[in-house]
Simulated assay, not measured.
Amino acid sequence: MLIDSHCHLDFPDFAEDMQGAIARACEAGVGRMITIATSIARHDVYRSIAERFDNVWFSVGTHPHRAHEEPGTTAEQLVELAGHPKCVAIGEAGLDYHYDESPRDIAAAVFRTHIDAARRTGLPLVIHARDADDDVAAILRDEMGKGSFKALLHCFTSSRALAETGLELGLYVSFSGVLTFKNSAELRDIARDVPMDRLLVETDSPYLAPVPHRGKRNQPAWVADTAKVLAEVKGVSFDEIAQQTTANVLRLFSKMPPLAAAGPAL
């Protein structure tokens, strides 16, 4: 079984096809999904999706693109919202200097607030990092010095240096369909060197559909295509990657029940 550790089932792309997308995921051997928050204001939407489907969990947080809309979010608010039984993570939060949709100082402050909430709850922080490697690394090092917390670098497309910093600090690294792209040889080299017990796979759907689906709306079922390439990169079987990444998700997102306790898929 595979787990799509990061998708966005609340996005309009799934409005008419959510149940179908989840059913297709199950048919493809993707037994669980985590729908990731981008805004505190939409918390009820994420929660309702997770409550509707037994095999979907959710997170709570503010994406760096939305940080300027929710600058006053407190760690206490995040902790309270994270109390729901199916909320298994904080985030996604971080820094994005590619689009710079939020002032950098505000995004950094919101990022630190999410780290505080992750530390208080023991839930992993889902980190968004794009074109901001040095500042993300500096914040992670500074905050880890204040007290440890669990986290992962999601949809990893950053530098080897950030991957090494994250691994040094105990973080996990998640790869999306970008890993399958023809021009991603350097990223595959980085993935090859990430320890097996720190690897995750994700779709980040509806974005970044993997080969051979590029140009289409991505969906959780297609995390299997990324897993196949990751298996090739690591020189192991697809089954081994599926087993290892699933074990890693359950270890990191430890609030999620073990597989034996899973209910029906739909």
Score class of each variant (00 low, 15 high):
236 V>F: 05
39 S>P: 01
117 A>P: 07
57 W>T: 05
83 G>T: 05
217 R>D: 06
35 T>Y: 04
141 R>S: 09
67 A>S: 10
180 T>D: 05
194 V>W: 08
149 F>R: 01
169 L>M: 09
100 D>H: 14
36 I>Q: 05
51 E>T: 00
248 N>D: 11
172 Y>C: 15
161 A>G: 13
139 I>C: 12
105 D>R: 14
263 G>H: 00
133 D>L: 15
222 W>D: 07
85 P>K: 00
209 A>N: 02
57 W>M: 14
210 P>Q: 13
184 S>K: 06
16 E>S: 03
238 F>Q: 04
90 I>P: 03
15 A>R: 02
78 L>S: 02
96 D>Q: 13
203 T>E: 08
169 L>T: 09
223 V>H: 10
95 L>D: 01
179 L>F: 09
77 Q>I: 03
201 V>C: 12
5 S>R: 04
237 S>E: 09
94 G>M: 01
262 A>V: 09
160 R>D: 06
29 G>H: 04
258 P>D: 11
33 M>W: 03
53 F>R: 05
86 K>S: 04
54 D>V: 00
96 D>L: 01
181 F>W: 09
241 I>C: 08
205 S>E: 11
243 Q>V: 07
176 S>A: 13
129 A>H: 13
126 V>K: 12
75 A>D: 08
82 A>E: 05
212 P>I: 03
134 D>I: 12
208 L>V: 09
80 E>F: 00
148 S>A: 11
85 P>T: 04
11 F>I: 02
30 V>P: 14
258 P>G: 00
138 A>S: 13
227 A>T: 12
165 T>R: 03
135 D>I: 11
193 D>S: 14
184 S>M: 06
80 E>V: 06
235 G>P: 06
209 A>G: 03
60 V>S: 03
172 Y>D: 15
159 S>F: 07
253 F>C: 06
26 C>R: 14
151 A>E: 12
78 L>P: 08
98 H>F: 15
158 S>D: 14
236 V>K: 01
40 I>P: 11
171 L>E: 04
192 R>F: 13
109 A>N: 14
85 P>H: 01
175 F>H: 12
255 K>W: 11
245 T>A: 01
117 A>L: 11
63 H>N: 15
145 G>P: 05
240 E>Q: 11
160 R>I: 02
34 I>Q: 08
160 R>Y: 03
167 L>W: 07
67 A>K: 04
140 L>Q: 09
241 I>V: 15
206 P>F: 07
224 A>H: 03
31 G>F: 06
206 P>I: 12
168 E>G: 04
263 G>P: 00
222 W>P: 15
185 A>V: 12
60 V>F: 03
115 I>M: 08
62 T>Y: 14
29 G>M: 10
70 E>F: 06
223 V>S: 04
129 A>Q: 14
62 T>L: 08
246 T>Q: 02
2 L>S: 02
167 L>F: 08
150 K>I: 13
201 V>T: 15
30 V>N: 06
6 H>Y: 06
73 T>R: 12
149 F>V: 01
97 Y>W: 07
23 A>I: 02
